[in-house]
Design a protein around this nucleic acid. Structure first.
Lengths: 162, 162
DNA sequence: GGGAAATAGAACCGAACCGGTTCTGTTTCA
DNA sequence: TGAAACAGAACCGGTTCGGTTCTATTTCCC
């Protein structure tokens, strides 16, 4: 199956959490608890998202992370690109990389490009705001203090059956 | 980056080749030569595609592989599912698997489903016929006898930059 | 009828990649 | 000045993937 790396997987969960209170900044440790993603992993992800200008960070004692822009303007495609690099099923379609060697002959060349574009557009069409909006009406019961037990299973669990 | 396994990568190339002459059956070795994919790999892929009813096979001396249906009815989604299993970026959205543990709380749950659907629809919207149709007008110069040199690079080469 | 050609299927292996951790450095605030 | 928090890089073990190899079975043709 096509699979999303856990980095992106967790990243989206974390951002979704932040998007529920767009103004508020939260510390990495708090976000880790809120999403049941390990603190180390959370930190790694948050740093990557800062570099991609999706988050802004405040260092120091009262520091934390907050969305750099309104969640309506952040797309899933941007998040995945920030965490896992360019969205392209095959580099065949990447005009920069010439790994193929038989590009000019490759009968599927244009097809690849088409596929990649379809995927990218699909992911660019979903905003973080939409992701956060789909939370059930019931205000999720105080995730922050949820017993650590639930954390044994990673938040947005794993990947397709192999 | 979201990445497509080489199985699917090569598979699409191979099928594209077959789709250029939908009626004709070709031996695995011939297809391998035509696509510059190793014979072993080609064989593996072809067998999987037969199991998925995308190809039909004829055993024995004059055997070979041919499309089981017109290329217009074969979608990229079907091909990928045949070779790599179900298309789902995360199993979070798979109603069968309950790996998450905190499903009912997961704020991104519906979002995942939305993402997965978008991807699946994008891939289901591209048919093998379309892939094959994009071959440049120039009839590709007799791939069957192309010098083996070109095969040092795999056909539809690799995957996003890491 | 037998052998060659071709597919079917499973098992196997090395290596790259990924998920995850740890450590050190820097910034900020009280 | 020290604790809390972010920044960044290095590191490591395990899983998975790409690819090969081997054996069995089918079919055609001489």
């Amino acid at each position: 199956m096509i699979r999303l790396s856990r980095l992106s997987d967790y990243g989206i969960v974390i951002l979704t959490r932040l998007a529920r209170e767009p103004g508020r900044a939260m510390a990495a440790s708090t976000l880790a608890r809120a999403t049941a993603v390990s603190t180390a992993m959370t930190g790694k992800i948050l740093k990557l998202l800062v570099r991609a200008d999706i988050l802004v960070s405040q260092r120091g004692v009262r520091g934390g992370y907050a969305l750099a822009r309104p969640p309506e303007t952040i797309t899933v495609a941007q998040i995945i690109e920030a965490l896992d690099g360019p969205i392209a099923l095959t580099s065949c379609a990447d005009p920069l990389v010439h790994a193929c060697g038989i590009e000019s002959l490759c009968p599927a060349r244009d097809g690849w490009r088409r596929i990649n574009r379809a995927i990218r557009e699909a992911l660019a069409g979903i905003t973080l705001a939409e992701m956060a909006r789909t939370v059930p009406d019931v205000p999720p019961p105080n995730l922050e203090t949820r017993p650590r037990a639930a954390a044994s299973e990673p938040a947005a669990a794993t990947i397709g059956a192999r």
